[in-house]
Structure formats: C-alpha cells, structure tokens
Simulated scan of single mutants.
Amino acid sequence: MAERLDRPKGERKLFKPRRSSQESDRFGRVSEGIARFLGTPRFLVYLTGFVVVWLVWNSIPFTAENHLRFDSPKLYFTALTLILSLQASYAAPLILLAQNRQDDRDRVSAEQDRQRAERSLADTAYLAREVAALRQALGETATRDFVRSELRSLLEELKDMDREREDEVSGE
C-alpha cells in the first residue's frame, strides 16, 4: 500500500530483464561473434558437410530393418528441414543485431570524424590568418634594398647641401 493512488502505474512487463549494460554488451559481443562466423566460408563448408553426412547416413540402407536411420527419406527428411529452419530462425536475428551494433559503431565513428574535420578546419583557418598577418607584417618592414636606397638619397641630399654651402662660402 506504499504506492500512491493518484499516479498511474507504470507499464507492466511480463518479463523484467534486469541486465546491466555490461551483460548486454557481452551478449552483443557473443552474438556478433556468431554472426561473423555465420558469414564465413568455413561455416558454409561445415553446414554443407553436415547436410551431406545427414543425407548419406539416412539414405543408405544399413540393414533390412533400417533401425539406424533417424530421418526417413520417405518423409522428405523432415528432421533435417526442421534443424535447418531452426538454424535460420536464430541466424537472422543475430545477424540483424550485429548489423545494428555495427551501425552504432559507424555512427559514433562518423561523429568523431566530423568533429576531427571541424577541428582541422578551425586549425587551418587559424594558421591561414597567422600567415596573412605575417605577410602583412613583412610588407611593412624595411628591406635591405629599401634602406640602402634611402641612405643613398640622404647622402645625395647631404652632398647637395655641402655643395650649396661651399658655393655660398666661395661666392661671398
């Protein structure tokens, strides 16, 4: 009676799985491993070998009674069909689960790539601004040739002033 009556009850679930994220991740990793194995040539070879052995074992007459057979070809190998259907019914959800987990990893990877690209773009823009500032600063600094030409023009002006003074002194 500790529940409050003025609030609706939450969803009632028939089964309340109380898995931690670690257990869920472990199940995901195991199912991915199975799904990866189901997509290998080794699995196809094993499955083909299993089916061939099954068909040969249940097709060859051993004795007149055929008591060693467990799946009759007269019934179109019903047990084999059921086993393969069971395998397929478990394989499909495991493959889908593995694909969903791969999609999640791809989404996280794409987000990280996008963030990395944004940082690279920001760094590139910063470096471009710095290079432009350096070019501008270099454009404002005096080069060696500029300083030499300025000194030559000043020297010429001084020589002209000296000549004018000498002319004035000698003309007096």
Rank of each mutant, 00 (worst) to 15 (best):
A137K: 06
E118A: 09
A117L: 09
S85M: 03
A122Y: 03
R26C: 07
E111C: 02
K13D: 15
G33C: 02
T78P: 04
N66T: 03
P17D: 15
R4M: 06
A98V: 03
V52R: 01
L155P: 00
S170R: 12
P8K: 05
P61H: 05
A110C: 06
K74N: 13
Q87F: 13
G39C: 07
L154T: 09
F62Y: 13
I60A: 14
R36S: 12
E130V: 13
L5A: 14
E111D: 07
D162R: 15
R7N: 07
Q115N: 10
R135P: 07
L80C: 08
Q87P: 00
A91Y: 01
Y46S: 12
G139D: 06
A133H: 09
F27R: 12
D145S: 04
A110R: 10
D106K: 11
R19S: 13
T48N: 08
L86I: 07
F15K: 15
Y90P: 00
L151R: 06
E118I: 02
R129M: 10
L96T: 11
H67Y: 13
N66D: 09
A35E: 03
V56E: 02
S89G: 00
F70G: 06
L94E: 04
Q115M: 08
A142R: 05
L68E: 06
F43Q: 14
R152G: 00
L154A: 08
L75R: 13
K16E: 15
R119T: 05
A122W: 04
A128R: 15
Q102C: 05
L97G: 07
I83G: 02
I95S: 11
Y126L: 13
R165W: 12
S85R: 01
L82D: 06
R148Q: 04
D123A: 14
A137L: 06
R19I: 08
Q99T: 15
Y46T: 09
E111W: 06
L151Y: 03
P93W: 02
S59I: 11
R105A: 03
D162Q: 15
R114A: 14
D106F: 08
P93S: 01
S109F: 03
A137C: 02
F27T: 14
R107T: 02
A110P: 06
L151Q: 05
R135A: 13
S24M: 10
S109Y: 01
G33L: 01
R7S: 12
S109H: 04
G49L: 09
L97A: 04
S72N: 05
F70N: 07
A35R: 07
P17Y: 15
N100W: 09
Y46P: 00
